[in-house]
Each structure stands twice: as C-alpha cells, then as structure tokens.
Amino acid sequence: MFHVGDIVARLSHRQDIFFRIDQLNSNVNGERSAILKGLNLRLLADAPVTDLVSKRPMEIANYEREDNKMIYKKLHKLTSQRKVDQDDQREFFEIPGRVLQLDGDQDYLSQCIKTYRQMGIEAKGICKSEIEQPRVIRKILQENPADILVLTGHDGFINGKIDFHSMDSYRSSRYFVESVLEARRFQHNRDALVIFAGACQSNYEAILSAGANFASSPKRMLIHAFDPVFIVERIAFTPTDQIVSVKDILMHTITGTDGIGGVETRGQMRRGYPRSPY
C-alpha cells in the first residue's frame, strides 16, 4: 500500500529518480495511479501504482547525501570565487540584489531561501502553486520590492504529447509564461527586474519570449531544485555596471546548458564607498 508523502521510484525508469507521492487517484476501472514530485528535481510526473517501488530510509539517506555533496561543491566554488572578488575590492562595501521567489513547493522554497540568506542575499519566499502564480504576482511585486524574481515549482512534458511548442504539452509551462507576462506588465525593463522562470522540461522558448531573462529547459531536461539559486547568486553579486556572461553563469549550475539558458543581463549588486569600520 502506498500513501501520499511516501518516497518511491519508478521501476520502468530503473529507479533513477526518487519522488514523493503528491496524489493518489483511481480510474473507473479501479486502476490506481500517482502524481509524483521529484525529491530533488523540479519534475512533476505520473505513474501507475504498479510501477512504483518504496524506498527504504537508508536508500533515501544515501540518495540525499550524494545530492548534498554535489550541491556543496557548487556552492563552495561560487563562494570561493566571490571571496577572491571581495578581497580585490576591500575598500568597498556591497549591496547584493534582493530576491523574491514564488514556488509551488514549500520544501524547495524553504531550502532556497535558507541558502540565499546563508550567502548574504536578502530574500523573501512565498509559496504559491503554479496555477496561482499568474493571479497574484503583480500584487506580490507591489508589496515586496525586488531586483530578482524567481518563479519556480514543478513542470513536465506530458507523456504521449509530440508538439514541443504547444502549451497543452506541459503540466505547468503556461502558468510560468502567464506569470512572466504579468510581471513584465509591472516592470518591463529586463535589467530593472531580472526574472528566472521554469522547472523541469518547461517550454523554454515561450518563457523567454514572455520576458524572462533566464528560463528552463532548452532541451526539455530535468533541472535541479537548486539550479535557480546558482543563477541568482551570480546575478545578485555581479555589479550593476557589468553584464553577466550567460555562458559563465550556466557553468555554475548542476544542469548546465541542456537545462537552463538565458539572455545577457546586467548584474544587480551595488558597491558603496567607503566601507564603515563598524
């Protein structure tokens, strides 16, 4: 028996990704299926219950440990580079860009906000489902001034679909597109409000066309829950008089250019002088 909240993997995919069961459903024939959310990937998928296998606590711990090691390596590289940059500019103080993140997953959101703050970035997180985000984004932006907006959650290319351009082929892409359009009606300048939007396998071209600076997923790949954090860190700590190198910024992500892409964007950090001794 499976229950909502159980950690499982799919037999048909060689148990490569661990998921948390989000919903359990039954059809008219009594066949049961599950809606699954990736444990560390922003993927929303479905599977018949017969395709699922429960994961033991030790397996989950090992899976999370390997994932944490990968995240730590990326964060260590980012912070080490930033320390070198700061040492070269010791007489200045820094005000990194402010972040506002809307996410359809409270667990992911909490992890992201905690990491932003550990890196010295002012950040606020608001949990809103993907379908809610377009309706609330303008009001939230009015009440929470930000330099960088992150619109994330879960997505996925629906099994059996063949049109990569149709919004009907994706679970959440239309909501990310609508949210970006609403945010751009509030602030049209891509350098005054930097936007990252999308999740696993999202309609990359449509999200960028709506006005996002960065989006997923060029090759309809899975993206890691922390990939938006790595993008935001580089933008937040790049001075406003510099253009963020798209190629360089993507090298700092876990997914790389298969999962995330974007356009040239100004940094959002302001330097001040002189630095106070207090």
Score class of each variant (00 low, 15 high):
Pro218Trp: 14
Met119Thr: 12
Ala197Arg: 00
Gln81Trp: 09
Val177Asn: 05
Gln242Gly: 02
Lys37Met: 15
Asn25Met: 07
Gln106Ile: 13
Ser173Leu: 06
Asp107Leu: 09
Gln142Glu: 15
Gly104Lys: 00
Phe186Asp: 05
Ile223Asn: 10
Val28Pro: 00
Val263Gln: 09
Arg135Met: 08
Leu11Ala: 12
Ala45Trp: 11
Val28Gln: 09
Ala34Gly: 14
Val8Ile: 13
Gly97Pro: 03
Ala183Asn: 07
Asp67Gln: 12
Tyr63Asn: 03
Glu143Lys: 11
Pro134Tyr: 05
Asn25Pro: 01
Ile113Pro: 00
Thr255His: 01
Ile121Gln: 10
Gly261Glu: 06
Gln89Val: 07
His154Cys: 11
Ile140Phe: 02
Ile254Gln: 04
Asp87Cys: 05
Ser217Cys: 13
Arg14Val: 11
Leu149Gly: 08
Ser173His: 07
Val180Trp: 00
Ile207Met: 08
Asp107Val: 13
Cys200Gly: 00
Asp248Glu: 04
Tyr204Phe: 15
Ile113Lys: 00
Arg184Gly: 05
Arg270Thr: 13
Ser33Glu: 15
Ile148Pro: 01
Pro239Cys: 03
Ile254Ser: 04
Ser202Gln: 01
Asp155Ala: 13
Glu264Pro: 14
Met221Ile: 11
Met269Trp: 01
Gly97Ala: 07
Lys37Cys: 14
Ser26Leu: 11
Val99Arg: 01
Ile158Pro: 09
Ser217Asp: 14
Leu41Gly: 09
Val150Cys: 13
Ser169Glu: 13
Ile207Lys: 02
Gly262Cys: 06
Arg32Asn: 15
Val244Trp: 02
Val180Lys: 04
Pro145Tyr: 07
Gly198Trp: 01
Met119Phe: 14
Ser202Thr: 03
Arg42Phe: 06
Tyr108Asp: 08
Leu250Pro: 00
Arg234Leu: 05
Asn29Phe: 12
Leu250Arg: 01
Gly262Ile: 05
Arg117Tyr: 09
Val99Gly: 04
Ile162Ser: 15
Val232His: 03
Arg184Ile: 06
Phe18Pro: 00
Phe226Arg: 10
Asp16Cys: 06
Gly160Pro: 12
Ala197Gly: 06
His165Phe: 13
Ile60Asp: 12
Asp46Pro: 00
Leu75Ile: 09
Ile260Gln: 02
Glu264Thr: 11
Ser54Glu: 10
Glu31Ile: 13
Asn68His: 12
Tyr72Arg: 11
Gly256Asp: 10
Gln15Thr: 11
Asn189Thr: 01
Ser33Leu: 10
Asn189Ile: 00
Lys69Gln: 14
Gln201Leu: 01
Gly259Thr: 10
Glu205Gly: 05
Gln133Arg: 05
Ala146Tyr: 03
Phe176Ala: 08
Ser80Lys: 12
Lys77Gly: 15
Ile162Thr: 15
Ala212Trp: 00
Arg275His: 12
Ile223Leu: 12
Val177Tyr: 07
Ser179Gly: 06
Pro218Arg: 13
Met251Thr: 09
Asp22Arg: 10
Val244Arg: 02
